[in-house]
Design a protein around this nucleic acid. Structure first.
Lengths: 236, 236
DNA sequence: CGATCATTCAAACGTTTGTTTGAATTTCCG
DNA sequence: CGGAAATTCAAACAAACGTTTGAATGATCG
């Protein structure tokens, strides 16, 4: 298996393999995993149907590779970004704005350069969190573990009075906003009553997300009394 | 067609139809739309395969009905909740906490009673926003339009200094957090380094989401200068 | 009861799915 | 060049898909 891979790389560098990955990334993003057929992928990649089995072994292995080749570098870049920030701060706790920034900037960085190729993966990634494809349930936790651990430490240092449980929840909320917001404007168009100017401007999204999320992290703790519900009679 | 429906209701009230809807709701939630087969649904509903065609006409019509029978009442309840709040406030602007509450409480209200039946739909709904099934792209905007318009007015009144564009973005962020947070703990487990106590307690989620989102809405406006990027050399 | 409708059922329809096969083709290196 | 390895290709595979059919069963009312 390793020998085979090496020969692939040495010989022709397998342009087909790369075309398949890009086509799969696009089509998984557009139609979802289950709704995308290998015939559609290979047609788009201008490759033969059997090429998927030959290069990856199965459809499942293909989607796994689509994620791993992107998610690993992305999360490594996030941690590296955080490392640089902390180094520059010389041990002082960072503002939560900087931590959110460290989650966001690497994600949207590769966007403008390769002509929205990075954006394609981000949309796919946003979908992946809600897609129940069994293969992903095993991939994502492994890919995200280091990021979660590392950033949680940093957040705890920046918000020393925040209980651990509450911090985990707020990071959970942050991931939700990210995966939804970065995942593209399809859903955005659903709720926008007026067309947003900057809908496709990644930088604008970052600048708007940072203060929004940072304020959420700094929000006062919820009072954990029994929930109040406004009934028809007695309104609050 | 109308005659047929009426007879269905009069005669046997079609228990089968209801079982199909519930089975479809569960299975769409667990495996997604495209990955769920009619054979799986009918098996779970203990109905015949042809029952779907008979009662709904097609798989597409089935999923449409699954959404419409839930989303309409949910969004109506949200607007009604907001109406009551504004009535009680006698024209005074509401705190953004109350507006977020009006989005949340109706969504999680039916949760505990029918033994997580409401929760099932919420997870499905969260997925729907990222699922690219073409049928949903037409359903969701129509179902959400009134909610968006109504709540945007209310938010604008509560946050008079917020530019319209910024408000739209922050509502967009809110929808992201909601659909991700309410959609269930599958994704939550992905990032939780420690097990959360209240992961299944809807009230606890509400109490934690409200201050988080309200603070986000009240966050200072972003400075719309060119984005700063921390490079390897010069850190910020 | 008998007629009439709604509903269920087993079986089959034609497509499309992911995967496999074995031969043809291309690429590489001695 | 020539042989070996890597890659492509058209064709076929069984399995699963959504949908349709026509007869069997059930309920309803004059």
């Amino acid at each position: 298996m390793d020998r085979l891979k090496k020969n692939v790389a040495i010989r022709s560098e397998s342009r087909t393999r790369e075309r398949l990955l890009q086509a799969a990334e696009s089509m998984f993003m557009e139609h979802g995993y289950a709704a995308t057929s290998l015939r559609g992928i290979t047609a788009r990649a201008k490759a033969n149907l059997a090429a998927v089995s030959y290069h990856f072994g199965s459809k499942e292995a293909l989607i796994r590779e689509v994620f791993e080749r992107r998610l690993g570098p992305l999360n490594s870049a996030r941690v590296a970004y955080l490392d640089r920030l902390e180094l520059a701060a010389r041990g002082k706790p960072l503002a939560v704005e900087r931590l959110v920034e460290a989650m966001l900037v690497p994600a949207l960085q590769g966007t403008q350069d390769p002509l929205a190729r990075g954006t394609t993966f981000l949309r796919l990634l946003g979908r992946a969190f809600s897609e129940p494809a069994d293969h992903l349930r095993e991939i994502l936790p492994a890919q995200y573990r280091q990021v979660v651990i590392r950033f949680k430490q940093a957040f705890a240092r920046s918000l020393p009075d925040m209980p651990d449980q509450e911090l985990t929840w707020r990071m959970h909320f942050m991931f939700g906003t990210l995966s939804y917001s970065l995942a593209g404007n399809d859903a955005l168009k659903l709720i926008a009553t007026c067309n947003l100017e900057d809908a496709d401007d990644a930088d604008a999204v970052i600048r708007r997300l940072i203060p929004f999320l940072a304020a959420g992290f700094r929000a006062p703790l919820p009072d954990m009394q029994p929930a109040r519900v406004v009934s028809g009679r007695k309104a609050a």
